[in-house]
């Protein structure tokens, strides 16, 4: 069980989710991916898209300055 960190605050759609997907595909069972995003668009979309892939997504955490933390569990 490990926590992996990913920062996509400088990326734009769809590269935000491309990088998220690459990180998700590296997770081992029990691992958590913490993705930092900028703006409420990715904060809404990334959890949806991750859930669509069958991952469990925790409630999104506002982290100030219009950034959000999304925790995704495998």
């Amino acid at each position: 069980m490990a926590i992996q960190e990913l920062d996509v605050t400088r990326d734009r759609c769809p590269i935000t989710f491309v990088k998220t997907r690459i990180a998700l595909d590296k997770l081992l069972p029990g691992d958590v991916l913490r993705v930092r995003v900028s703006g409420d668009g990715p904060a809404r979309n990334i959890p949806r898209s991750a859930a669509e892939l069958g991952f469990a997504v925790r409630p999104v955490i506002p982290a100030g300055d219009d950034t959000y933390i999304i925790e995704i569990e495998r």
């Binding site: 759609c13 989710f17 949806r48 898209s49």
Partner: peptide
């Protein structure tokens, strides 16, 4: 496309 993932 509603999400960025839909651009695939």
């Amino acid at each position: 496309a509603e999400t960025c993932a839909m651009a695939g």
